[in-house]
Design a protein around this nucleic acid. Structure first.
Length: 446
RNA sequence: GCGGUCGUAGCUCAACUGGUUAGAGCACUCGCCUGUCACGCGAGAGGUUGUGGGUUCAAGUCCCAUCGGCCGCGCCA
């Protein structure tokens, strides 16, 4: 729209006649005098329609929430008594000269800024995404993606696109979605870009990808959804798992700092604080973490192959208290519990050079050094009862020369959810898919 | 999948141990209002209490089944 001014920039135009456009947030009709709060992506502004503008008043009386309008008006400084110092454009208001209705809206199903049950919220996402709270979540998420990308580029990584359609559920373990493919074949939706990023090490040495992956787990929790975004990287010529951990740590720090820098008010808005980031994230082996759990929390944990959700919350409590960190690395999970390509610790092959990053009580990342020797990898596949023939495509990477390498995988939604302390991961996903919802296709009449 | 808990107006909720015609706020419609900012005031409309069965003189409330939500666990990275 020609010469349209963003609402967030009106303070630069006091005394001028401007064109602004957006959605009606609220209308306050005083009879002869009507106030309208207008919203665009940059913010809100109060507009006043005075009785002298007879035509504009007539239009303004018809307006309701979410109608889309274009307004010509005069930007006035507010009289001192009416200045709202604590809000955007609180020092000015737009005196309306003319209103053009671009689109009407039906009656809203609920009060847009009121409390909503998650269920209702998700049923009406096209509308609820317009609320400040929700759009702020996804503005933060956009910043995370941008900062993560920039951080990895700075660290010498090159981005590639990983496929979503794959020929086999090779990794095993997680439940997969199958799709009809050509010639009566079954293909699958990728559960991870793992194989592809390893393959790309041969081309880029340091590849990364931000990939959609799909998990058909029948999980109904606050931390699971069926379609997630993974921020993955892989790097060649490493010494051990500590190298990818260092890259990850830098990327996480850069992402958190970018959010803090670009969204100054957001932590307060979500009733939380910028996460505590120490000089170095604390690193514990699984055993060390379990010993701390037993000593500090009286939790029976030593000998367990993994950390339970409750343990993850406790170890974070400890890390915050003792190390001033909202992040903690756990390393050396049992080799048998990790994926077949995970590199065993040469000093104790029962344990692997693997790591998880836990953030505010939730695992947001996992990674490891990988096996790079072809024969060893083939043996490993066999020992797990799988058929190397099915991994032929992937195994070429190792057959034709592969350096020691490792990488990591961060769940974007989990990271976002913990960063803003959102109760449910579905709030950190713009269009969440779960067992009972894919938009409203699965909704039954309630 | 298992356990807990919940399902009442478009939305968010109320209705003591079963008891008359199921209420409120917001939204909606109509009227009034020149400084509000979640404007205010007055009136109106809006319900098969998720669904099906049962107990009872009487069920939103108790029982059974079923569907759905949320939380936790499991599964899962």
């Amino acid at each position: 729209m020609i010469n349209r001014i963003k609402i967030g920039e009106l303070s630069k135009h006091i005394g001028e006649e401007v064109i602004i456009a957006g959605w009606v947030d609220v209308r306050r009709d005083h009879g002869k005098l009507i106030f309208i709060d207008l919203r665009d992506v940059s913010g809100k502004v109060q507009m006043v329609v005075l009785p002298a503008q007879a035509e504009a008043i007539e239009v303004a009386q018809k307006l309701r929430a979410e109608w889309v309008i274009r307004v010509t008006g005069l930007v006035n400084a507010r009289p001192e008594k009416m200045v709202k110092a604590d809000q955007l454009n609180g020092e000015l208001e737009v005196e309306v000269k003319a209103i053009e209705i671009l689109s009407e809206a039906k009656e809203l199903p609920f009060d847009k800024d009121g409390e909503l049950n998650l269920d209702t919220y998700l049923d009406y996402l096209p509308l609820t995404l317009r609320t400040k709270r929700t759009s702020d979540i996804f503005k933060v998420q956009a910043t995370i993606l941008e900062a993560y990308r920039e951080s990895l580029r700075q660290q010498g990584f090159i981005e590639f696109e990983s496929p979503a359609l794959v020929g086999g559920d090779a990794e095993g373990g997680s439940a997969v979605f199958s799709v009809d493919y050509y010639y009566d074949q079954k293909a699958f939706l990728a559960t991870s870009p793992q194989f592809y990023k390893q393959i790309m090490v041969g081309a880029f040495e340091r590849p990364f990808t931000i990939a959609k992956v799909f998990r058909a787990e029948k999980s109904a929790t606050t931390r699971h959804i069926s379609e997630i975004t993974q921020m993955d990287f892989e790097m060649g010529f490493i010494k051990n798992h500590l190298d990818p951990m260092a890259v990850l740590e830098q990327a996480i720090k850069d992402s958190v700092n970018a959010v803090a820098d670009r969204h100054a008010e957001v932590f307060k808005e979500f009733n939380t604080e910028k996460p505590l980031i120490p000089e170095k994230f604390p690193i514990l082996t699984l055993l060390e973490a379990q010993e701390i759990l037993e000593k500090e929390f009286g939790t029976k944990a030593v000998g367990e192959p993994d950390m339970e959700p409750e343990h993850e919350r406790q170890i974070c409590e400890w890390a915050k208290r003792e190390k001033g960190s909202d992040f903690v690395f756990i390393t050396h999970f049992p080799t048998s519990k990790r994926a077949f390509y995970t590199y065993a610790d040469p000093t104790n092959p029962k344990l692997s050079l693997s790591f998880d990053l836990i953030f505010r009580g939730l695992e947001i990342n996992s990674g490891s050094q990988r096996i790079h020797n072809y024969e060893e990898l083939v043996e490993k596949i066999k020992s797990r009862g799988m058929d190397p023939e099915k991994f032929k495509f992937y195994l070429q990477t190792f057959k034709y020369g592969m350096p020691p390498h490792g990488g990591s995988s961060t769940g974007l939604e989990r990271f976002t959810a913990r960063l803003l302390e959102l109760a449910n991961i579905k709030e950190a996903t713009s269009f969440p898919r779960d067992m009972n919802r894919i938009d409203n296709l699965l909704s039954t009449d309630k």
